[in-house]
Design a protein around this nucleic acid. Structure first.
Lengths: 143, 143
DNA sequence: TGCGTCATGTCAACATCCTGACATACCGTG
DNA sequence: CACGGTATGTCAGGATGTTGACATGACGCA
């Protein structure tokens, strides 16, 4: 790999980082019996209990259909629960079970370690800049 | 969406940016009859002619099997060619055809416009920092 | 009240990507 | 030379994600 034009593309480096991060998370979460999308779903639900399937799909950047199978898996494992039918509207509010909260707590420790290792190679003030710039970019792209 | 802990995670923002970028590229490349992995493959081949399937897979962060179907598609469309059998070893050197180069040239313009729009919201010196930091992070994660 | 619009959950079909496995070819060392 | 280790291309199977489509429920407006 030489240092040519490809490495100058932010898009390419972005993809590279995301690939490495995903691999690290997959490996860490496997020990907790979770996939990365499942973990993302639990994390979202922990911070905002009662989110619907569609809400979770948007938050995890996947389709409603994909999130639905993720939820089904979490439901079968007893980590998540949702009412059989909506009290109002069609949206079914999803909530973590006690077991789900506990599983998330343990998995979160490992994932947070990866995040710390990831940003650990940078000066703290640079991390703040990085996060701000990435957010601006996402907004600029319409994400 | 409130500004809570989730938005402070670099990993989450990374995923958000990558999702938006992928969507933008998919939309732009569709007009050229290309998928994003196909485009990535053409780009790699343009810069390093003769790369093998395995080389391309590593460069695009996918498995050899996935890259093989990408190559098959490009081959059927006459954008790429590879010898029926290797002159030495097992690796089959892949090369762009004239049509492939031309298709890439046009698609590249649109993709480059996305890249410019993406980093355009940032000061140029910040872009350099961003790229450097992302590269360091990727290396730190073992990517 | 009725109607158009939008969001949601869900089904089906398809595309994409991956892991596991295998045979083959090189390459180093004994 | 023989051998283990490594890398490549390829096949089979399964997991994951997507688009398209449909029915249902909420909301705004005439």
């Amino acid at each position: 790999m030489t240092q040519d034009e490809l490495d100058t593309s932010v898009g390419y480096v972005l993809k590279r980082v995301q690939s490495a991060l995903r691999a690290a998370m997959d490996a860490a979460l496997r020990e907790h019996g979770l996939t990365t999308p499942q973990y993302a779903c639990l994390e979202l639900l922990d911070q905002r209990p009662g989110l619907s399937n569609a809400d979770l799909a948007r938050g995890a950047f996947v389709s409603r259909q994909s999130m639905n199978v993720v939820l089904r898996g979490l439901e079968e494992n007893g980590l998540v629960e949702r009412p059989a039918q909506a009290a109002q509207g069609r949206a079914l509010p999803v909530r973590l079970t006690a077991e789900g909260r506990e599983r998330l707590r343990r998995a979160h420790a490992d994932v947070f370690a990866i995040e710390r290792r990831m940003v650990g190679v940078l000066d703290p003030e640079r991390v703040a800049l990085l996060r701000a710039d990435l957010t601006r970019i996402a907004e600029g792209l319409g994400g």
